[in-house]
Nucleic acid binder design. Structure first.
Lengths: 218, 218
DNA sequence: ATTATTTTAAGTATAAATACTTATATTTAC
DNA sequence: GTAAATATAAGTATTTATACTTAAAATAAT
């Protein structure tokens, strides 16, 4: 009865991490890594034709991040279960993953045993979130009940132009430089900068840099 | 003759990464992971009493980073070989590792095969640096020949006060705030800020934040 | 004890960012 | 096609940072 193995696809941009996890998984007789991907887009492509049981996906990847991959999967109604791995226990990531429809979320600080447990739980239709993560969920579940639709608002609802300005700001450009490069007035650049900092709720460049890095805003 | 295995200690703060690499290593019959550490200090302690053949160490770790561990090992004249793993192919890290006396340096983007090759090379007394890394070394070897003793100067030779100011700057404080908190004049704070940015060779806050993060300057 | 380094802090002038408000084109969406 | 959102940009006043130079105390090192 336990004849067919759980077919897994691994997506992580670090080969060594991938090889490590693969070795770890293949020590288990009921698991099988059928394919790997080194970025989000590749993962999606492989997924569509291989139709595995489970996808293990890292959040930070080039091209398309793990959360976006999960979102795409759910949107397309693919049957694959998803287990999100993360180096960072950023609250926002957790919430985004849940809302994207991830079946599980594990910190890389989790142990092998927890990893395998999560894997099986998710495979059999359950949800698995590592300890520290659960508390974040509980807290947000409560606050969400009070003011529905508020949490994890799609990123920060920056406009295209604001994102564009942001990316320049994050390169250390001054408003003047930005204005010159985009052929807009310095004042306009100022306004955009002002607005986006307000939206991101940061008071200075340092906080901006950190927040942007944390949420993967280019 | 190939009776005794290569005894390895693994140091990485992420349990899952550790478990993965361990699984990968223990698929090889000539290797054996005798112990693990989740931070630099722990690694050193274990090392001193276990005397393994080889230490695989991640750069970013709490308490004491990988490079510092390598440096301590060489200082104490321990016989263990060292293989440094890194997520980041930062030029500075590579150079620091070499100067600390590391026997090998591998990017986590390396494959399992390259990993094992590196391992064996280092164990048998050789040096191993993954492809992309070698070019960095070559370049710096040349420039060093011209002006010896210049490269990888111990951090950036910031003074204590400068480091202190830096940590405030990195919290997003203004010179005025810093001055108030440290009971110095605003002008003094300005000078320190100016000098430290010069020493770190950055032109703006963003670059400062990145550089500081990269080199682990608090 | 005497260099050397570090820390302190002032001056001067310029450039940039902050914290708004107001207001008009221009898109985009329903 | 009209409303809503976005992008544009000006005004005003204040605060901060930049880019130096100079120079005196205070500490640390040999």
């Amino acid at each position: 009865m336990s004849e067919q193995k759980i077919r897994i696809i691994l997506a992580d941009d670090h080969v060594l991490v991938r090889d490590g996890i693969k070795a770890l998984l293949e020590d288990q007789e009921d698991l099988e890594v059928v394919n790997e991907a080194s970025d989000g887009l590749e993962a999606l492509k492989i997924l569509e034709k291989k139709a595995p049981d489970l996808l293990i996906v890292d959040i930070r990847m080039p091209e398309m991040n793990g959360i976006e991959v999960v979102r795409a999967i759910k949107k397309q109604g693919l049957a694959v279960k998803t287990l999100v791995l993360s180096m960072h226990d950023s609250e926002e990531y957790v919430l985004q993953s849940v809302e994207a429809g991830a079946d599980g979320y594990l910190l890389k600080g989790s142990s092998k045993d927890e990893f395998l447990k999560a894997l099986h739980t998710v495979y059999s239709g359950g949800k698995y979130f590592s300890g520290d993560v659960s508390s974040i969920l509980v807290e947000n579940f409560i606050s969400r009940a009070k003011s529905p639709g508020t949490v994890a608002e799609d990123k920060f609802s920056l406009t295209k132009r604001e994102r564009q300005i942001l990316s320049h700001v994050l390169k250390g450009k001054s408003n003047k430089q930005i204005a010159e490069e985009l052929n807009i007035s310095k004042r306009t650049a100022e306004v955009h900068r002002f607005n986006l900092m307000k939206k991101l709720q940061v008071k200075n460049l340092i906080e901006l840099a950190n927040k942007a890095k944390e949420y993967g805003l280019s």
